[in-house]
Design a protein around this nucleic acid. Structure first.
Length: 151
DNA sequence: GCCAACGTTGGC
DNA sequence: GCCAACGTTGGC
């Protein structure tokens, strides 16, 4: 079992939208490192859901991987903002797993609060200049965040 | 809106 | 392969 964190701008796709949809393809990621993480996600992996460019930016809930990554359909759609003209059907460049809603936290965890937790100080999310929209999270970090969410 | 930190592109 | 120019992310 691995743990991850994904970022989304709430105006683009929020935790509330995922709660309604129940499941969604995590498409549109166009960064190679993030893509490689998406491809290595296993069914059942748990995923922290983070709202970026939000007020405040915060971890807002948990999802899980419900399907392994498949070729991202938006790369082939010329009308989609994530269209990639260099991607070919027989050699897709971008991949996306399906994520399933687990829960929204009663109280979201703003970045400013996360920075105060000593056990989380090495989280990728909290490192200066860290822009990756898909990140691995350690079991210890994940469980600490679960603990905080229940307090 | 600003800007630091990256990532990508493309000429050479 | 280098690197300048440009684009994007995302906190503030």
């Amino acid at each position: 079992m691995a743990y991850w964190l994904v970022k989304s701008e709430p105006l683009a796709y929020s935790i509330d939208q995922l709660a309604k949809d129940r499941r969604t393809l995590w498409d549109g990621v166009r960064n190679y490192q993030a893509r490689n993480y998406l491809k290595s996600m296993a069914k059942g992996d748990e995923v922290l859901f983070y709202h970026s460019n939000a007020q405040p930016p915060a971890i807002v809930g948990v999802a899980k991987v419900s399907k392994l990554a498949v070729p991202d359909p938006t790369q082939f759609d010329s009308k989609d903002s994530h269209f990639d003209p260099t991607a070919k059907i027989d050699s897709p460049r971008w991949f996306c797993p399906e994520l399933e809603f687990i829960r929204k936290f009663k109280c979201s965890m703003p970045l400013t609060e996360l920075h105060k937790v000593p056990k989380l100080k090495s989280m990728l999310l909290l490192k200066k200049g860290s822009r990756l929209s898909v990140q691995p999270v350690t079991a210890a970090e994940f469980h600490k965040i679960m603990e905080i969410s229940e307090s």
